[in-house]
């Protein structure tokens, strides 16, 4: 059996789409949860970002897996679309849908737009191409085991929430403490600076809502395609889809809203 035999079967194509979808949805959920750390403050948020970066090879493994999942997801989608266009060569002149919703009929469009949004998002926040000025922001910090090496004033500073080690302080004890003081990407600042721009916020707004549309159909579709159902739990499974996608959308778009309203990141 060749590696791409599944492409011949519409059901197996859909299974591939569903399985890769599981990974992508899991990623979106994790991403959402991670993003929520922004409400715990800059220290936690940046620490989380730094933790992810520190994974090194594992991070790359996850990235590659997700990338492959995305590619397979797209291949399967295109495959199914071509098959389906061929199966309905003549359209009805008048059409009234009963159960097919806008979300289910526009999966290819929402999917493509989410893909475009994803590309922009990566360029914006992961690679830093679109807004390099906002992207290249850093902060200095001392690891927790740096106590005692630092001057007393600095310790006090470190123990405070949202502590920052300024260049000035750093200069004071550079010779003795330089090994304990580190520089990291100030993701918090990057996000806040980014979303302060209402155009960028709008862009995210639209992107996330399209993602929500896509997920609204996709999640229950995933269960259906993989055959996960039972009369007792069917309703539950079907409702799970709009509930989860709504939660994701609300969480995600709350960040630009809060930042625009100045509720988050106002102090910087």
């Amino acid at each position: 059996m060749s590696l791409f035999n599944w492409l011949k079967s519409s059901i197996l194509s859909k299974v591939v789409m569903a399985l890769t979808g599981v990974l992508l949805v899991a990623f979106v959920c994790g991403h959402t949860l991670g993003n929520m750390l922004i409400y715990l403050g800059k220290e936690e948020f940046n620490a989380y970002a730094q933790f992810l970066q520190s994974l090194g090879e594992i991070l790359w493994l996850i990235r590659i897996t997700l990338f492959l999942a995305l590619i397979l997801h797209i291949i399967a989608a295109i495959r199914v679309k071509f098959l389906n266009m061929a199966s309905k060569p003549v359209k009805y002149q008048v059409r009234r849908y009963v159960k097919a919703k806008l979300t289910s009929r526009t999966m290819l469009w929402t999917g493509s737009m989410v893909l475009a949004f994803l590309a922009y998002h990566l360029l914006h926040f992961t690679i830093g191409v679109t807004n390099p000025k906002d992207f290249h922001v850093y902060e200095y910090y001392a690891p927790h085991n740096a106590y005692g090496v630092l001057p007393s004033g600095a310790i006090a500073k470190i123990n405070e929430p949202n502590s920052k080690i300024t260049q000035n302080l750093l200069d004071q004890f550079e010779s003795q403490a330089s090994k304990q003081v580190m520089k990291r990407h100030d993701v918090y600042k990057m996000v806040v600076l980014g979303f302060k721009n209402p155009w960028i916020s709008l862009c995210y707004f639209i992107g996330v809502i399209l993602l929500g549309f896509h997920l609204n159909h996709a999640i229950q579709s995933m269960f259906q395609t993989l055959g996960i159902n039972h009369p007792k739990y069917d309703k539950c499974l079907r409702n799970f889809s709009p509930v989860l996608s709504t939660i994701i959308v609300i969480c995600m778009i709350s960040i630009p809203i809060n930042i625009l309203l100045g509720l988050t990141g106002g102090a910087l």
Partner: peptide, 21 residues
């Protein structure tokens, strides 16, 4: 399923329009 595809029927994308009609 194989015969279904040979006959030129499309694939399911879970519109549920079939159940509705």
């Amino acid at each position: 399923v194989e015969q279904m595809e040979k006959e030129g029927f499309g694939g399911c994308t879970n519109f549920y329009e079939c159940e509705a009609v």
